[in-house]
């Protein structure tokens, strides 16, 4: 479905990605793991057109996405839940959702979608008229995901959805991601919380300072590589708990 090949990207003089490749097939949940600064967010930004990569290709459903505007890429069916949630704080929850449905608005379907979102996230119905900025972190994350789902994406990309959330909220978010996966949504999940991400993922990639270090199933990853090394750069026998 999504094929990224040999992607190069940089911020000014600093290279952020050195030729990474990855693939997401329909119906899969693929986790993209790595430490801070490994290039995870840069990869997502390059895919959705916020950042223009220096080289390589991004193909989605057989179409080249490089050079396309973010709004055009959304129309192709890729929706991003950005890092830090990026809720429109001065807009109400309802307005946030309405903007989420900007590209595919039909009155009846919109109503139906809203009901569906309320079923997934009951809290949003309660808070419908409140400004997005007044929601708690977890509620904002739910709103961000709901907002992204309103465009009926073929591929949903989540950038660090558990970041900065309380443990119970993290549980809820991962349950939700599992639910979405079970419903057949194709997901590319970027996470620092490798343990949790691997529990829900079908396949995983590990990025390290801009290069792809590993790809395979979670089981393969566990056997080949100590997860801790992903974080601390240690060896397989390196000690250390995986902390988040």
């Amino acid at each position: 479905m999504l094929t990224v090949k040999d992607l190069y990207a940089s911020y000014g003089a600093i290279n952020a990605l050195h030729g990474i490749s990855l693939e997401v097939n329909e119906g899969e949940l693929v986790a993209l793991l790595g430490t801070n600064g490994a290039g995870k967010s840069t990869t997502l930004k390059s895919i959705c057109g916020v950042l223009r990569p220096q080289g390589g290709s991004v193909e989605f459903l057989g179409e080249d996405l490089i050079g396309k505007k973010p709004e055009a890429i959304l129309k192709k069916g890729i929706s991003l839940v950005p890092e830090g949630r990026e809720i429109f704080t001065s807009l109400s929850v309802a307005e946030n959702l309405r903007i989420g449905a900007f590209s595919c608005y039909e009155r009846d379907r919109y109503r139906y979608d809203l009901e569906e979102m309320f079923a997934l996230f009951p809290i949003l119905e309660e808070r419908l008229q409140q400004p997005g900025g007044l929601l708690s972190g977890g509620e904002q994350q739910m709103l961000a995901i709901a907002r992204a789902l309103m465009s009926h994406p073929k591929l949903l990309m989540l950038d660090e959805p558990s970041l900065g959330l309380s443990p119970t909220m993290v549980d809820q978010i991962f349950d939700l991601i599992a639910t979405l996966r079970d419903r057949g949504t194709t997901i590319l999940l970027v996470e620092q919380n490798a343990e949790r991400a691997l529990r829900v993922a079908d396949r995983a990639y590990v990025l390290k300072t801009g290069s792809m270090e590993f790809s395979g199933t979670p089981a393969e990853l566990e056997s080949e590589l100590d997860i801790a090394s992903v974080y601390f750069g240690g060896t397989k026998d390196g000690s250390g708990e995986v902390t988040v």
């Binding site: 911020y11 950042l51 973010p70």
Partner: peptide, 12 residues
Amino acid sequence: RKPAEAADSDES
């Protein structure tokens, strides 16, 4: 501005 961060895909 951050040099690359800006969808230079605007020229249309």
